[in-house]
C-alpha cells in the first residue's frame, strides 16, 4: 500500500471511536458506510479524486470488489456524491492507469482481472498465502475494535510496524 493510499483511507473519518469536533458545516451526521460504499470528506486536504481512487483500491484488496464488478457511471457517482463529474472521471483515469479497472464501451468501468493489476493477490484466489494474510488482517481489525481502538489507532499501529519492520 502506497503512502497516498494510506492518506486516502485516512481521509475517511473514523466513526467507530469518539468523534472529534467536526468542521463548521458538517451536514447531516453521515451513516457508517456499507461494504461497498465510498465515503469522501470534502474538507480533507486529500483531493476527492484521490480519496475515491484509494478507497476503490482498498475495496479490491480486501475482496469487497472482484474482477468484473462494474462501477457506477462517472456522472451517476458524481451525482450521488454531489461533486463534479470531472473529479470522478479523474479518479477512474487514475484507477485505469494503475491497472485496477478497465474501461470498455457500452460496458463502462469494470474491475480488472487480478493478472492486470499490480496489487496484492485478489482475495479468494487460489493463493493460500493471500487468503491467510487477508484473514489475519481482518482478525487484527476485529480484535482492535473489540478493545475499543478506532480506525485511526489501527492505522497508526500499521504505520509504526511498516517503519520499524523495514529490511
Amino acid at each position: 500500500m502506497t503512502e497516498t493510499d494510506r492518506q486516502g483511507l485516512e481521509a475517511a473519518p473514523d466513526t467507530t471511536g469518539p468523534q472529534p469536533a467536526g468542521p463548521a458545516h458538517p451536514g447531516p451526521r453521515a451513516a457508517a458506510p456499507g461494504p461497498t460504499e465510498l465515503r469522501v470528506d470534502l474538507s480533507s486536504p486529500v483531493p476527492v479524486y484521490e480519496q475515491i481512487r484509494s478507497q476503490v483500491v482498498g475495496l479490491v484488496a480486501v475482496g469487497a470488489l472482484g474482477a468484473g464488478d462494474r462501477l457506477p457511471a462517472s456522472r451517476d457517482l458524481a451525482r450521488d456524491l454531489g461533486i463534479a463529474v470531472g473529479t470522478v472521471q479523474r479518479a477512474y483515469r487514475e484507477l485505469e492507469a494503475g491497472g485496477t479497472v478497465v474501461s470498455r464501451r457500452r460496458v463502462g468501468t469494470v474491475i480488472a482481472p487480478a493478472g492486470l493489476r499490480g496489487a496484492a493477490p485478489e482475495a479468494g484466489t487460489a493463493s493460500s498465502g493471500g487468503e491467510d494474510l487477508l484473514a489475519r488482517t481482518r482478525d487484527l481489525v476485529r480484535r482492535a475494535r473489540a478493545e475499543g481502538l478506532g480506525d485511526e489507532a489501527v492505522l497508526d499501529m500499521v504505520r509504526g510496524a511498516l517503519r520499524t519492520e523495514r529490511t
Binding site: 451536514g27 447531516p28 465510498l38 465515503r39 470528506d41 457506477p72 457511471a73 451517476d76 461533486i83
Partner: peptide, 15 residues
C-alpha cells in the same frame, strides 16, 4: 434533499 455536508457517501453499485 440533495447531498449536503462535507462528508458524503455513495454506494459503488450501478442502478
Amino acid at each position: 434533499p440533495r447531498p449536503t455536508g462535507t462528508v458524503r457517501t455513495a454506494p459503488l453499485v450501478r442502478r
